[in-house]
């Protein structure tokens, strides 16, 4: 599965939104209804799915779906 599809599925599951709403430019907080606890849970889920460790200072910069995709692309081989 493409990174985008895997990311979409996690976000849709965790935030209870339709996958169609999970477009690259969508902001977790402003567009997808996430709060600070949701973001923590999402970051954990991405770490698990992509076998990554996302430090807090990097996590703080992740605001949109595209930010996650870019981060994953840059940190996985």
């Amino acid at each position: 599965m493409e990174i985008l599809d895997r990311v979409k599925k996690i976000i849709a599951d965790q935030l209870g939104v339709d996958e169609d709403e999970v477009v690259p430019e969508a902001s977790f907080i402003d567009d997808l209804g996430a709060d600070s606890l949701d973001i923590v849970e999402l970051i954990m889920a991405f770490e698990e799915e992509f076998d990554l460790e996302i430090p807090d200072e990097d996590a703080e910069k992740i605001k949109t779906v595209q930010d996650v995709i870019d981060y994953i692309k840059n940190h996985t081989s």
Partner: peptide, 10 residues
């Protein structure tokens, strides 16, 4: 510990 849910306590 890094996998314990942020929703655990609430």
């Amino acid at each position: 510990p890094k996998r314990v849910s942020p929703f655990f306590v609430p």
